[in-house]
Design a protein around this nucleic acid. Structure first.
Lengths: 244, 244
DNA sequence: CGGTGCATTGATCAGAATCAATGATCGTGG
DNA sequence: CCACGATCATTGATTCTGATCAATGCACCG
């Protein structure tokens, strides 16, 4: 997913005067509701950062000083129990906003899955902007609503679906996400490890692996070059995911 | 949707001029940020309704015409799979807002657990008010944030906790809720059935029942008059809930 | 080449589900 | 007022899904 390994892109002229205007994920992010001047203003409080795989981005419990917009790569959000059990609450990518669910302190941790680019805002300065631009605040509320809906689907998955249903639901959600950002539905990229998938679905790595093997055997999925997974019959997978 | 079975309550005098000012849950609800005039205004677009146990309040998939504030009783939010498996995504009570996680259509269903009172707003009229009063919108965003944090805790519970940990976590959350609305921590009221608890925790009724028996045997909980559950040692229960 | 980390596969186990029966509670009507 | 039925909760016996324990395979990299 945009693994820009070595060099960073050479800034184009318009990126210097108004970098956010040239942002590739602007349409999907909170920034989609901002006009040119507003974009310039938000650019002035934004810092772009890059993270390597496994780098921590935020730590649960720390003061919530910053909010983030993911502009490249994949981020995992997770919580830990004292004995080390981990629940990944979501994978974020292009355009996703990180830090809505925050009071004084972060309620979860975040790490880079692959090479990640983010846009970072100081919390208090972003809040000033929110006060100034109610339509930005409205946009945030809209994004929070969507996250809540997703969270409920996730609860259904964790509480009531079988291992097979979970895996298929997961693959379909990745597929839909790819479509939403303008990609193809079928060969799905899996940047995260089996352990990550397990901790997201409430399973173990072994069960994830076995379930993949099962789906392969039944020709419900096929492994392509570079670990991409193709979904030959999305409709029938959707039936499986919904428990029919 | 509007299943107001018999009669509605007789309004008291102050409820007529400004019913919301007298609302017992105002401090906890979205309305806490509104002043006298604003309260009068929101009152003008609000309808109070009552529901009996098991009455449907909203239906997943229906157009999201209304939003609600719970002012009494307990509401269960849930989603269903086609084969009938149910996941309860939350129990709402006094002061909770219902409908943040809503686009054009409701993303979940809601039913009355016991006798429920709500304040109902037409969605479009409430949105007009949100545009007019940015601090109300800010309040909504704050409530949405809190719901997201809760949702993440819920995911951790569903995905990674054992049956015993789930039940104890659940009891403690009820206890904390009681404290938040000004009640006592220890004898906890359980208005919902074992089946509801099971569908909330991703368990079966039998497992819920067995786990209660286990906790009773170990003197971790005690059943009081009227089905109230007392928690003799909240600190040690907290240890269990956190998986130590 | 050998090491390290990740994925797969196998064997066994355990926690919770399922199937089944009994018990408690409550509302209703005789 | 009691008896009956309905609903819900509890308990027991058994099954089964997914976890755990363990070994092997595979790819990447110094």
């Amino acid at each position: 997913m945009d693994v820009n390994l070595n060099r960073r892109p050479v800034p184009k002229p318009d990126m210097i005067s108004n970098p956010c205007a040239a942002c590739s994920v602007r349409d999907m992010s909170i920034c989609s509701v901002l006009n040119g001047d507003e974009l310039r203003e938000i650019a002035s409080i934004a810092t772009t950062l890059e993270f390597s795989p496994h780098d921590p981005i935020i730590d649960e419990g720390e003061p919530a000083e910053f909010l983030f917009n993911v502009t490249g790569g994949t981020v995992r959000l997770y919580k830990l129990l004292p004995d080390g059990r981990r629940q990944i609450t979501g994978f974020l990518c292009n355009g996703d906003f990180m830090g809505i669910a925050v009071n004084q302190n972060y309620a979860y941790s975040a790490e880079a899955v692959d090479r990640v680019k983010v846009c970072r805002f100081a919390r208090n300065r972003l809040e000033t902007l929110l006060d100034k631009y109610p339509h930005l605040e409205k946009r945030m509320l809209g994004m929070a609503s969507n996250e809540l809906i997703q969270a409920q689907d996730q609860m259904m998955m964790l509480g009531r679906k079988t291992a097979k249903e979970k895996i298929v639901t997961f693959l379909l959600s990745l597929s839909q996400r790819q479509v939403k950002v303008g990609g193809k539905a079928s060969p799905v990229a899996l940047p995260m490890s089996r352990t990550d998938i397990a901790d997201y679905l409430g399973l173990t790595t072994e069960t994830v692996s076995r379930t993949f093997s099962l789906l392969k055997r039944d020709h419900a999925i096929r492994i392509e070059e570079g670990g991409m997974i193709s979904l030959p019959d999305i409709d029938s997978l959707q039936q499986v995911a919904d428990g029919y």
